[in-house]
Simulated scan of single mutants.
Amino acid sequence: MVSPSSLTKLVFLACFVLFTFSDKLVAEESDKVQLYLYYESLCPGCQMFIVDDLVKFFDSDLETITDVKLVPFGNAKVSDNMTVTCQHGEEECKLNAFEACAIKILTKPKSQYTFIRCVENNTEHFQQECFQGFRDEKDVNDCYNSDLSKKLILENAKQTMSLKPKHVFVPWVTLNGKPLYDKLDDLVSQVCNTYKGKAPLPKQCNPSALSEKKTTSKLQFSYANGAIKY
C-alpha cells in the first residue's frame, strides 16, 4: 500500500513531468518562423504567390520550422458604418469572407492552405472544383452565410491595418513580424536563415537545394492606391 506521503510525491512528480513536457512543446512551437501572408483573393500577384510559391512550404519539410498564417483582407477599406469595400470589387469581398471562414473552420495550416490554393486557382468555379470530397463544406458555408464571416473579416481588417510599418501593397509577407517588402524571390532562404530553433534544418535549407530554388515568378503587386506591375 502506498503511504500518503509517497502518493503526494508521485503526484508532484507526475505534474512536474507534465508541466515540463508541455512547456517544451510550447517552446518548440514558438521557435518556428512566423510567416504571415496578407493578401486579397482577386489580386493576380496574390493568386500567383499562393498557387506557385507558398506551396513550397507545404509539400516539403519546411513546415517543421515555419508557421504559415493567411490573412485575407489586403487593400480593402472599412467605412465608419463597418461596410467593407474591396479593391477588386464585391466578388473579392465574397471570396475574402469565404476564405476567412475556411481558415476558421479548418484547424490545420496545411488543410487551410490546400483549400485556399484550390480556390485561388479556380476563383470562378471553385465551388465545383474545391468542394469535391470536402467534408467541411456545410460548416464553411454556414459560416459564410452568417454574421461570423463579417466578424472574421473585420478581425483581419484590424490585424492588417495595425501592421507596423503599414503594408504598401499585397501580397505583403512578414517573417517574425518584419516585412519583406518586394524581396520575395528568395523566400525559402530567408526563412531558413531566420530560423533559430533547435530542430534540425530541413533539407530544403541545404545550400545545394537553395541554389536550385532561388527564383520566384515575377509578381504583379496590387498597391493600396492602385495596381502596379513589378
Rank of each mutant, 00 (worst) to 15 (best):
E29Q: 04
L18R: 04
D52F: 15
A224H: 09
T123G: 04
L152E: 03
K183V: 11
P44Q: 04
P200M: 02
Q127M: 15
L62K: 04
K56N: 15
P4E: 02
S217H: 15
T66R: 08
V68S: 08
I228S: 10
F21A: 03
P165E: 03
K94M: 13
E63I: 14
N141M: 15
G177E: 07
A157V: 00
K77W: 12
V170I: 12
K108N: 10
G197E: 06
S189Y: 09
L184P: 00
K69C: 03
K166W: 00
S60K: 10
L152V: 01
Y38N: 06
M161V: 04
C43Y: 08
K77N: 12
S189A: 02
M1C: 01
I228C: 03
K94F: 15
K69A: 11
D142N: 15
E40V: 02
K218H: 13
N81Y: 00
V51F: 03
G133L: 01
E29T: 05
C46D: 10
E90C: 07
M161E: 09
D67T: 12
V140W: 07
F12H: 13
N176Q: 08
V17T: 14
K110V: 06
S208A: 05
Y144N: 05
F169C: 04
P72E: 15
P109E: 12
T66Y: 04
A209I: 02
G74H: 06
F58N: 02
S3C: 14
D186K: 12
K203Y: 12
D67L: 10
I103W: 13
I105F: 14
V68C: 03
Q204P: 01
E91A: 14
E212T: 06
F73I: 07
I105S: 13
L10V: 08
G74C: 09
T85C: 00
A227S: 11
S41H: 09
Q159W: 00
P44T: 09
E40L: 13
G74T: 03
D186R: 06
V168W: 01
L35K: 01
L187W: 14
P179G: 12
T85P: 01
E91T: 11
K69S: 14
K196M: 09
P202E: 02
D61Q: 06
A224Y: 11
I116L: 13
I116K: 00
D31S: 10
L62T: 00
K198R: 06
L106I: 15
I153P: 00
D182F: 08
D136T: 07
A97I: 11
A102D: 03
T194Q: 07
G89V: 00
M82L: 15
S3F: 09
I116P: 09
C15M: 05
A102C: 04
F58Y: 10
V68M: 09
S22C: 08
E137H: 14
F115M: 00
Y113S: 14
Y113T: 12
T64L: 05
V2W: 09
D80I: 02
F73C: 03
K32S: 07
T114C: 11
C118H: 04
Y230I: 07
L210C: 13
I105N: 10
L70V: 05
L148F: 03
S5Y: 04
